[in-house]
């Protein structure tokens, strides 16, 4: 039972981190990127490649992972978002981020291969069970990431500028905020954090080119559960989904994971579309 709970928390941590990454990009651009889960996929595969194929130290793997995530984030904004955000047509950014996400996934599949590869151990460990690092890394990282982001939003000028942009981008521009540059920066941060989540949870997910779509979905469910824009909500939503999946896994088998997830999402959309901690009005129609 402890194992199930720990597994649920770990999965929840991963989903929560993905939800946090959604939030970072959403704050400056009002775009929910279809490629959000792909950052973790890229981070995981790059780390595995550097450590397992190139036989370089883990720290270099981590550095490469973060750099790759940052680059990917920057490219996402530049290619799929910048031109479209001006047109403010939701239709278009869903398609452009979906297209880019598909391209990256396929490119990684062609380069790295389509079989999930075990991820390197981060620290030496002689035992298995509930205290396994593969569980604790995502849990700890997710909490650190949420706390870090909250500090970033509350204590740093850049974080405050992100909030200002999310509230009123036009007014922020009138105050002298270079909104294009800030949006770009937020995507780089999102890429780095996303890659980091892939690094932290790599032992759980393996280095797998097809990880991104499903993770993007789970992260979105966590986000929708917790409410867009809330860091605490992202974590809580992630843990709720993670626990549900872990318990379903335990009692009914792994093949029903996504069915449960979608059931939860549907239920949520009916009962509370703005999420548990959300204040954003999601109804536009």
């Amino acid at each position: 039972m402890l194992l199930v709970i720990v597994n649920g928390l770990a999965l929840g941590g991963l989903y929560g981190m993905t939800a946090l990454v959604y939030n970072v990009m959403y704050s400056t651009s009002k775009v929910l990127s279809f490629g959000t889960g792909q950052f973790a996929m890229v981070g995981g595969i790059v780390t595995a490649f550097v450590v397992l194929n190139l036989h370089l130290p883990l720290l270099i793997g981590l550095a490469a992972c973060l750099v790759a995530g940052g680059l990917f984030g920057w490219a996402s904004e530049w290619i799929a978002v910048r031109r479209i955000v001006a047109a403010s047509d939701e239709h278009l950014w869903v398609l452009s981020t979906l297209a880019l996400s598909t391209m990256v996934q396929e490119a990684m599949g062609l380069w790295w291969g389509t079989d999930p590869t075990p991820f390197p151990r981060l620290i030496r460990q002689e035992f298995a069970g509930a205290w396994d690092q593969k569980f604790w890394f995502p849990i700890v990282f997710s909490v650190v990431m949420a706390v870090g982001l909250e500090l970033f939003y509350r204590r740093t000028m850049t974080g405050k500028v992100f909030i200002a942009m999310s509230e009123d981008s036009f007014a922020a521009r009138a105050r002298g905020v270079a909104t294009d540059r800030m949006r770009s920066l937020s995507y780089v941060i999102a890429g780095v954090l996303g890659a980091l989540s892939g690094f932290a949870a790599g032992q759980l997910t393996f280095a797998d080119f097809s990880l991104g779509i499903g993770l993007g979905l789970s992260g979105f469910i966590a986000l929708a559960l917790g409410g867009i824009g809330s860091s605490l909500g992202a974590l809580v939503g992630g843990v709720m989904l993670g626990m549900m999946i872990a318990f379903t896994d335990h009692y009914f088998g792994a093949e029903y994971q996504k069915t449960i997830a979608i059931g939860l999402l549907v239920l949520l959309l009916v009962v509370r579309p703005q999420g548990l901690f959300g204040t954003n009005r999601v109804r536009h129609v």
């Binding site: 939701e90 979105f220 469910i221 994971q257 069915t259 979608i262 959309l269 999601v282 129609v285």
Partner: peptide, 22 residues
């Protein structure tokens, strides 16, 4: 989902696509 912004619907249908093959 169709009352909500388009991304919700896109995500829900994506999820549906995934669970069918699952």
């Amino acid at each position: 989902s169709l009352r909500l912004p388009g991304f919700y619907f896109a995500m829900l249908t994506l999820a549906f696509g995934l669970i069918v093959s699952e």
